[in-house]
Amino acid sequence: MRYLSFDIEATGLAENDYMIEFGMIPFCAVTGEMNYDLQRNWYIKCPSFEELKPRLDQWVIDHNEELINKAHEDGQELSAFKKLFEDYLMSEEVKEYFGKDQGNKIVLFGKSMNAIDLPFMNRDLGWNFMREHFHHQVLDLSSVVRSLCDLKILPETCQSGSGLMKHFDMGDVAHTALEDAVNTAKLYLKIKESCLK
């Protein structure tokens, strides 16, 4: 299977928070190859950090001020981001990679996607956009890992992103969209490889 591994950074987890960064990379679970030529990363415009600060969670205040400022100053307007993303999805390279001309839809891959990724994408890109381009089935690394912990194949500490990264000697979670999208795909490939041994 080929997947589009993606990650979103946001101003928080609440319903009215903003997407501020979107990163993605296609990869093939069969060959284990990451398609770096098709990786992309965009910042999405949001209000300034000072404007948002009164309603931000403390973790976001402590860790994401620089990212919020980057999105505010350099980010694409949401409508422009949507157009860039659609142009990418309709490009010949992407259509060929995922077999879209044969009627295939792209299967999204990520971690804890129900938290913000899918709700925010449905909200900001629209239901029709999501259904036109993406398969209704997704693959969520967090769900895969939870199942493997239940089966005692992975230790319980792997249920957190940082614990999973440490288990596979991959350092710390980056909390930048593209690096997290890449690392999430790499983790899945490492898990797959370890399960096949």
Rank of each mutant, 00 (worst) to 15 (best):
K166V: 08
V30F: 02
L148H: 04
E73I: 11
K45D: 15
I44C: 02
D74I: 09
D7V: 05
W42N: 01
E77F: 14
H72Q: 14
K100I: 12
M24Q: 14
T184H: 01
N114H: 13
M90N: 12
A29E: 12
E33N: 13
G163T: 05
H136C: 04
K100G: 02
L4A: 02
G12Y: 02
V94R: 04
G75M: 03
V144F: 04
D117Q: 12
H175I: 01
E179N: 02
E66V: 11
N69W: 00
N69G: 11
N183Y: 10
M113H: 00
Q137D: 05
S79G: 09
E51Y: 14
D87P: 01
M165L: 03
F6V: 00
C195A: 06
E156C: 06
K100D: 00
L84P: 08
D57H: 07
A80R: 07
L52C: 04
Y97W: 11
Y88E: 05
R146Y: 11
Y188D: 03
N69L: 05
E73W: 11
Q76H: 14
T176N: 10
A10K: 08
Y188A: 09
F129W: 01
M19F: 11
E15Q: 15
M170F: 10
W42A: 00
F168N: 06
I20E: 09
F168W: 13
T11D: 03
C28P: 00
N41P: 02
A185N: 04
D150P: 07
W59C: 07
F6M: 03
S162W: 04
S142K: 03
S112Y: 12
K83V: 02
Q58T: 08
F6I: 03
Q137K: 15
K197S: 12
G32R: 02
V145S: 02
E51T: 15
A10D: 01
L56V: 10
M165F: 03
Y3K: 13
G99V: 05
D62K: 07
D62N: 07
N69Q: 13
K70D: 03
D101V: 08
S142F: 12
N41I: 01
M130D: 12
M90R: 13
L125A: 06
H167K: 13
T31N: 11
T157A: 07
I153K: 14
H175V: 10
K192H: 00
Q39R: 15
